[in-house]
């Protein structure tokens, strides 16, 4: 049984603002299915006595003091931006597809 359907890939593409052509939907559904099935093998060894893990280190309560430290200059911050306007990151229109 496949773990991921073509419809789910289309839905994910819409959430991710990716325009995927029809043939890629089929192709990606098949590929993602293989990936998910491979990762799912972990479940075979993770029996009920092993609690789910979200972190590799057995640590809790790692806190930083509340002190402000200078970060990047605006030039450094914007150095990697594809486009800049008025000291800000310029990005494509948002939610244009829902107008």
């Amino acid at each position: 049984m496949s773990a991921i359907t073509r419809d789910e890939v289309a839905h994910l593409a819409r959430l991710s603002r990716l325009a995927l052509p029809e043939d890629e939907l089929d192709q990606l559904a098949a590929q993602l299915d293989v990936i998910i099935s491979a990762v799912a093998k972990v479940q075979e060894v993770a029996k009920g006595d092993i609690p789910p893990t979200s972190h590799a280190l057995p640590l809790t309560n790692v806190y930083r003091p509340d002190e402000a430290v200078p970060g990047l200059t605006p030039d450094q911050a914007l150095a990697g931006a594809p486009a800049v306007e008025d000291g800000r990151f310029r990005v494509p229109q948002i939610l244009g597809e829902e107008e």
Partner: peptide, 18 residues
Amino acid sequence: RSKMFCSCATAFGAEPNT
């Protein structure tokens, strides 16, 4: 004084991306 997950300042009304 600083952000939730890093030590950047939090002053209101600062110049953009500073």
